[in-house]
Design a protein around this nucleic acid. Structure first.
Length: 500
RNA sequence: GGGCCGUUAGCUCAAUAGGCAGAGCUGAGGACUUUUAAUCCUUAGGUUCUGGGUUCGAGUCCCAGGCGGCCCA
């Protein structure tokens, strides 16, 4: 072999990357390490900031520390150099290197080897500068990790595509991106805390499934070599969580990923995190209360109150009781005429035409009423609103309404014009359940690829007896959007993107 | 799936009517011992997303495709 591909590739690098590689080589040539195994810090940047919070301008403490961080700002003058270091927690602290302290060789190598983005360790005295900036005045410095790629300019926003494709760069340069990661963690922890406090048990159910069910959605398909069989990535955990309730885990929840092989846009991601929970001897009212309390506690975990501040500065109050309406009630208001679950199809089609809503001939009256509701009412639902009592036709796994024939005990929760969660009084009669699922399977056989195949094992479980229960599902990404006003691609750290 | 817009230096963007591809920041060399998006001097850096076409000449016009965004379904 006469060619070395690595060397050829290096020759083709943009100038700035080539120069950074040369600096790395120079560090090695000088007998030092561009990537040392350790740097013995004596304090984090935050600890130094905390300990010397009130140090007056132009003060020398005599205290020596060893600190480390990424260089995010540099200013080199002839005999005095400044650099701002940043820690993983976002704390920044200035390092100063002066000729009389570090000597000419160390100052010179600092100026010629350190770039924006490098990780460095600095040992020296804690002081404040003449401008009052808390600083470490170095006695010595070392490279702790040489960055081979230049950072984007700090003062121009990175393009949205670059943010998503190279989230690690986004995290380095944009404080908001770092905050978003912690915000999500805070919310998810709050959900778990709230559920644990109420006696719910967290479980993990299969993501690889022989049959997909629990929702109407197109699944991702994969293959098991060991079983030589087709598998589906789950579209919902529902059928397994209900098996848990059958087995006696009376209060159960799961926070995990679902996968739906459908469109991607500003509010839909093919993989999305979801909280789903079931409560024996609950119903759609008890899980509505639970949902409100979970969301309000999550808001409080972020802000200390039920008022959240959105990305754009607007405030949204999620406190108090939430508005409750019925689906046909708000739909009647919107069309200016009484509409019920018994309103005939021809009348609904008239209304659809009047409001320029295209009608799919496969839809029944229940589905059409729901579409009218989504078209006419949903965009107006800004404040948190439970929309209750959906047509039985579109809710095959939901218990029939206890007093209103043709309706099911289901609610959808809407916030700021999008669906945040859904709750049910669960259907637990295995005979009715089988009828509904068989009807669904027939639809699947007719080519409706959103319909569910028949899950005999699930029906067998139900035949052992599931107590009356309430169930609820809430999108975690959607919850983050409601609490922060961010787009879905900001709430998900690494959203799916087309290959470069 | 359809329509529109975008794609140019490491990053963010310009480029008149088709006529030498530019700026700021970043980088390199130099000056400066208190900088905070410093200042000053010098300077490097390009497959203009890809592939075809028109033209004496294409970042610019035409065709096809990739990727992204917005709107619609």
């Amino acid at each position: 072999m006469t060619e070395n591909p690595a060397v050829d590739a290096a020759d083709d690098l943009p100038e700035q990357m080539r120069i950074r590689r040369e600096k790395r080589d120079r560090i090695l040539a000088e007998g030092r390490e561009p990537y040392p195994v350790a740097f013995p810090r004596t304090a984090s940047l935050a600890q130094v900031r905390a300990r010397y919070a009130d140090l007056p301008t132009d003060t020398a403490t005599g205290d020596r520390v060893a600190v480390a961080g990424r260089v995010i700002f540099m200013r080199n003058t002839g005999k005095l150099c400044f650099a701002t270091l940043r820690d993983g927690d976002g704390t920044e602290l200035q390092a100063m290197l002066s000729l009389d302290r570090v000597g000419a060789p160390a100052l010179d190598s600092w100026k010629h080897l350190v770039d924006l983005g490098d990780h460095v360790g600095v040992t020296g005295e804690v002081i404040t500068s003449r401008r009052g900036e808390l600083s470490v005045l170095a006695d010595e410095w070392v490279m702790t990790a040489k960055a081979l790629r230049p950072l984007p300019v700090a003062h121009k926003p990175l393009s949205e595509e670059a943010r998503v494709r190279q989230r690690y760069v986004d995290l380095i340069v944009r404080p908001q991106a770092r905050d978003n990661v912690r915000t999500r963690a805070t919310v998810v922890r709050s959900l778990r805390d709230s559920l644990h406090a109420r006696g719910f048990v967290e479980v993990e159910t299969p993501m690889l499934q022989l049959l997909h069910g629990g929702a109407a959605a197109r699944p991702f398909v994969t293959h098991s070599n060991a079983l030589d069989t087709q598998l589906y990535l789950r579209i919902a955990p529902e059928l397994f969580l209900k098996r848990c309730v059958v087995g006696g885990i009376d209060r159960v929840f799961e926070i995990n990923r679902n996968f739906r092989n459908e469109g991607m846009d500003s509010s839909h991601s093919p993989e999305f995190a979801m909280l789903e929970t079931y409560q024996a001897y609950g119903d759609y009212d008890t899980v509505a209360t639970l949902t409100r309390e979970l969301v309000q506690a999550a808001a409080a975990a972020l802000t200390g109150s039920t008022t959240v501040v959105h990305h754009d500065g607007s405030e949204v109050d999620l406190g108090g009781q939430w508005r409750e309406v019925t689906l046909f009630g708000v739909l009647s208001e919107a069309v200016g005429d009484q509409v019920t679950v018994r309103t005939p199809m021809v009348r609904l089609v008239e209304l659809a035409d009047k409001h320029a809503l295209p009608v799919d001939p496969k839809w029944g009256p229940g589905k059409l009423a729901e579409e009218l509701f989504e078209h006419l009412v949903v965009p107006e639902l800004r404040a948190p609103t439970f929309v209750r009592d959906y047509p039985e036709e579109t809710s095959p796994l939901t218990r029939a309404h206890r007093t209103e024939p043709g309706l099911a005990e289901k609610w959808d929760l809407y916030v700021q014009g999008f669906e945040l969660g859904t709750g049910y009084s669960e259907l637990v009669d295995p005979v009715v359940q089988r009828q509904r699922l068989v009807a669904q399977a027939r639809q699947a056989a007719r080519g409706d690829d959103e319909a569910m195949p028949l899950d005999e094992d699930f029906l067998r479980a139900m035949e052992y007896g599931m107590p009356p229960s309430g169930g609820m599902g809430m999108g975690i990404d959607r919850l983050l959007m409601a609490l922060t006003g961010l787009g879905i691609r900001e709430t998900i750290l690494f959203p799916l993107v087309r290959p470069e």
